[in-house]
Amino acid sequence: MTALDLDTARSIIAAARAHGSSAGFKPLTVVVLDAGGHVVAVEREDGASMKRFEIGFGKAYGALSLGMGSRSIMARAEQQAYFIGAVTAAVGGTLVPVPGGVLVRDEGGDLVGAVGVTGDTSDNDEAAAVAGIEAAGLTAQVD
């Protein structure tokens, strides 16, 4: 796979939502970006609060921007707040440094995109993203 296509993005979203539903998570919003940071697909569940698209996008876009999952970005923010603040400004404010932004790699290890999930706790958001990515036969990179 050289690109994350629409059918794959839809599969990721469906599996992430199914994981959230079976685990009793609050309503989720799932954003799938390609490796260039473009939106491939997004779904916002009924009852999700406003601005969830922007949060999910920021988690995924931040992961792509720094080449690491948003959990690692959070750890970096705790150690180097000025750096993360500067990066956030450099990417136009589209960086949300909490878990839930996961990089997507294909079977060859190539980066094909990122998934951002928001709506429940950050740990649960990340778990839903990983479940969606893995159900699509891809590799989730959280670090």
Rank of each mutant, 00 (worst) to 15 (best):
V117W: 00
A114T: 01
V98L: 14
G132E: 10
I13C: 02
E45Y: 04
G69E: 07
G119Y: 04
F83L: 15
A63V: 01
T139W: 03
E134P: 04
A86W: 07
H19L: 10
A9R: 03
D120L: 00
P27T: 09
A86P: 00
D34R: 13
G58P: 03
G85M: 01
L111G: 02
F83Q: 12
T94S: 14
Y82W: 09
T94W: 06
G113L: 02
M1Q: 12
A128R: 11
T121G: 04
R52M: 15
V32W: 02
V130E: 00
T8G: 08
G47W: 01
A131H: 06
G100M: 05
R17V: 15
F25P: 03
V87F: 09
T118L: 05
G20A: 07
G109Q: 12
A48D: 06
H38N: 08
V112A: 05
V91W: 12
E107L: 14
D143T: 14
A41Y: 07
A3M: 14
V42E: 06
D5W: 03
A86D: 13
V32C: 12
G108M: 14
R17F: 08
G108S: 08
A23N: 11
A23F: 07
Y82K: 13
Q79D: 10
S72E: 08
G67I: 06
A129V: 13
A63C: 04
A129P: 11
A136Y: 04
A129W: 00
V130G: 05
N124G: 11
Q80H: 14
V142T: 15
G93M: 04
M68L: 08
A136N: 10
D120M: 08
A15K: 10
E107A: 15
V112H: 02
V115F: 05
G108N: 15
P97G: 03
D123C: 02
A35E: 14
S70A: 01
E45V: 01
G62Q: 09
V40D: 05
A131C: 12
M1V: 10
V98Y: 14
Y61W: 13
V115L: 12
S11H: 12
V31G: 02
P99V: 03
E45T: 03
F83R: 13
D46M: 02
F25K: 07
L111C: 03
L64K: 12
T8P: 02
M68P: 04
A63N: 06
L111F: 11
A18T: 05
A60M: 07
A18D: 14
E43Y: 03
S11F: 02
G109K: 01
F53H: 09
R71K: 14
T2P: 03
G92P: 10
A9T: 03
S49F: 13
A135K: 04
G58Y: 04
G132W: 01
L66T: 09
M50P: 15
A89Q: 13
L138Q: 06
D34F: 11
A135P: 02
A136D: 09
S65G: 01
G36N: 11
G93N: 12
R105M: 13
D34L: 09
V112L: 11
G37C: 02
Q79F: 11
A3L: 13
L4A: 05
S21K: 14
A127C: 01
Q80Y: 13
A89I: 08
V91H: 04
G24K: 04
D7F: 11
A89W: 00
K51P: 07
M74Y: 14
F25E: 14
